[in-house]
Design a protein around this nucleic acid. Structure first.
Lengths: 220, 220
DNA sequence: TAAATAATTTAGATAAAGCTAAAAATATTT
DNA sequence: AAATATTTTTAGCTTTATCTAAATTATTTA
């Protein structure tokens, strides 16, 4: 059994090693968790002693296969709770993460199995991220440009190219945000602009340039 | 903001002072929480400094009105989560308490308001205990003998006189336990035995003697 | 490549929440 | 009312997860 703190480190190290090179630096962990590098070193020692990490002094940290298994189960719990908060309690997409950070540490296998069943075994969370199953298998859907979809395709917005401040402002105005469900209604051949339906409500036209800067996960 | 441990002490002291005399002894707290009396003394000092308790050395502890308010909100969370686990996730009555002990410490007001709404503002938990409302008001229903109910009354079993080992065994056999919902179908004038329906399923007859040893909370 | 800079680790400190053992206060018996 | 027993508190220790400051190793730059 792991403490909440150990779980948070493990999850962070797993996430950092997935979204980059396999060797995770002490500083990157410290930055993410907002703790001091010396605290990170301490925790790395603890988790290494439990064979959940491999660590070479001054070189970096790797997650072990046991560590990975545990991390994935924490992520599973996190994302299932996010679905619950979003779908059942009607929280907004940007409110669920913080609460799920607390709920994910509740340790009761039966609770998670029953929650999963109750939510009808969802495959993705409100941000479009895949939910690992009981056995830790993850169905990773690639993130593609909205401009690459075809008519009648459905997707969830998972990322926005935010180099450009104006784009975010515009998306905010037409109510597109991370987690929004979008259906492609029409594609105009002339300029590749597309007509979309946002969250089963408003329909709008967006230019190809905008559609190229929205990353989505295809669903069904 | 209180730590989980502080919350557990506060809740315990509130419960002990409700179910007995107002002065709570260090030993009784220690017994309930399975910590050593010396640890209890330490925590009492901490909570007294926060004005949540009043304490006189060697004499005993009282909960303050601020302490009471906080304790009631923790109990509110606990009982709402119990309803969720019981009604939505289909846990058994005797499984919900342990899980709710963890869930009750999650601190997010909006979460509890939304959970309350989602559960349709329940008034009692699966054990028949009242759920305090947002303002901390508790609708305390008296616990009465099952033998005192009238035809068509509904109730929840909240206590069983367990001096007699045979009674518990018998109740187990006919599937009556704490939290069971019972409807009175008929009362036989001759011997005051009653016909009841248990959890909207099986109907049985029980003697007046048995009915006198089951304490219930009337509902609707 | 040597010096400067950055990253990482070590050593030692702190606060929270528990513990044991002993002292002090209170309660109960004889 | 003394002696004994019980309860409560105090003093000091442990573990967990942090921290700061200093030392060590790695990397970058001039």
């Amino acid at each position: 059994m792991l403490t909440t703190s150990e779980e948070n480190y493990l999850k962070t190290i797993y996430n950092l090693s997935e979204s980059g090179k396999k060797q995770v630096s002490t500083n990157s962990i410290s930055k993410f968790l907002k703790t001091k590098p010396s605290s990170v070193t301490d925790m790395i020692k603890k988790l290494s002693a439990k064979k959940l990490l491999y660590h070479k002094k001054y070189k970096g940290t790797n997650i072990s296969s046991n560590g990975k298994k545990l991390a994935i189960q924490i992520i599973r719990k996190h994302r299932l709770w996010e679905v619950f908060l979003f779908e059942k309690l009607n929280f907004k997409w940007d409110e669920v993460h913080k609460i799920a950070e607390e709920l994910e540490h509740i340790t009761n296998e039966k609770l998670i199995e029953k929650l999963d069943k109750y939510l009808k075994y969802p495959k993705i969370d409100p941000h479009g991220d895949p939910i690992p199953n009981k056995n830790g298998e993850i169905n990773i859907k690639p993130k593609i440009k909205l401009s690459n979809l075809l008519i009648n395709n459905n997707c969830i917005v998972s990322n926005v190219n935010d180099d450009d401040g104006n784009l975010l402002e515009y998306l905010n105005k037409i109510k597109i945000h991370i987690g929004s469900k979008i259906k492609v209604f029409d594609i105009i051949e002339y300029d590749k602009s597309i007509e979309i339906e946002i969250d089963s409500k408003n329909k709008v036209f967006i230019s190809n340039r905008v559609a190229e800067n929205i990353l989505v996960t295809k669903i069904n």
